[in-house]
């Protein structure tokens, strides 16, 4: 039996989650692009937002800038550590996210999933689980804890929803690894870790191409101009951008302040 049980996956939405950091209304408005002239939020929007309010990645600056209610650093937030360890933990967070996602997908495929789709999504689950398990061991006692995720924004019964989020996670993962290479130290240790990360990111890119081709009828979608620019370069994101995108799905409070800056 393969043990895929690690990583908590919540597929059922909760109206409210405990969070020791309460984003201010101002932050919520900004984060969800809610404007005073926006139409009333739909039920789905509301559920997404309430889920998001529980997903807390603490950025020190965001907290202090919000002014009104500065909760300070959350002593319960899981620390990434610093230096190369923090970069690896950053990768570990993303691999946990992807592994948890595909475990949920494969445990209960959307209706009428073809055998080809099942096979491909099962491969993706296996690869992400292997990445996750490797990083857990490589990091040892410095590893982030098991992160709890909230996938209530996903309709696991919808092919379009499942594959769209898969595309988002794969492209996000590729861009994150691309932007993290330079965060490793410029010494032999950093070079070795850079190669390790490189061995993983190209597989993420293979995934991204696969999912994109599954979901799109555009024959060029696998490396479309929404991800590859006019110089033939793939998307690159720094940790603040990646974590801002991932926070929607993360329940466990995190303290990424030790991740080196680019």
């Amino acid at each position: 039996m393969i043990h895929f049980g690690r990583g908590s996956v919540r597929r059922v939405k909760r109206a409210e989650k405990p969070g020791s950091t309460i984003p201010t209304t101002e932050i919520l408005m900004k984060r969800f692009d809610v404007r005073s002239d926006s139409p009333l939020p739909t039920r789905r929007d509301f559920l997404r937002r309430s889920a998001l309010a529980g997903g807390v990645i603490v950025f020190a600056s965001a907290c202090s800038d919000s002014g009104v209610m500065d909760p300070g650093p959350d002593p319960e937030a899981a620390s990434f550590g610093s230096g190369n360890v923090a970069v690896l933990n950053y990768a570990y967070l993303l691999e946990q996210l992807e592994a948890a996602y595909y475990i949920a997908v494969v445990n209960d495929f959307y209706p009428n999933a073809t055998s080809e789709e099942r096979s491909l999504l099962t491969d993706l689950r296996d690869h992400e689980v292997a990445h996750r398990d490797f990083l857990a061991v490589a990091l040892g006692s410095a590893a982030l804890p098991e992160i709890e995720f909230d996938f209530s924004a996903v309709d696991f019964d919808s092919r379009t929803s499942v594959l769209s989020f898969a595309r988002t996670f794969e492209d996000l993962g590729v861009s994150a690894y691309n932007g993290a290479g330079r965060l490793f130290t410029a010494d032999a240790d950093g070079a070795a870790l850079l190669t390790i990360a490189g061995k993983i990111v190209s597989v993420e890119a293979r995934h991204a191409a696969a999912v994109r081709s599954m979901i799109s009828s555009n024959p060029q979608a696998f490396a479309g101009d929404d991800v590859v620019d006019g110089n033939g370069l793939d998307v690159l994101r720094r940790p603040d951008q990646v974590l801002a995108a991932a926070t929607d799905f993360v329940v466990t409070p995190l303290d990424p302040s030790g991740i080196p800056s680019a």
Binding site: A186, G198, A205, R206, L236, A262
Partner: peptide
């Protein structure tokens, strides 16, 4: 050479997308 590394990694993942397809 961090800026060149960024670019090399961005090319690398494009090659992997190609290989996959």
């Amino acid at each position: 050479a961090p800026d060149l590394l960024d670019a090399a990694l961005q090319v690398h993942s494009v090659e992997a997308r190609h290989a996959s397809e």
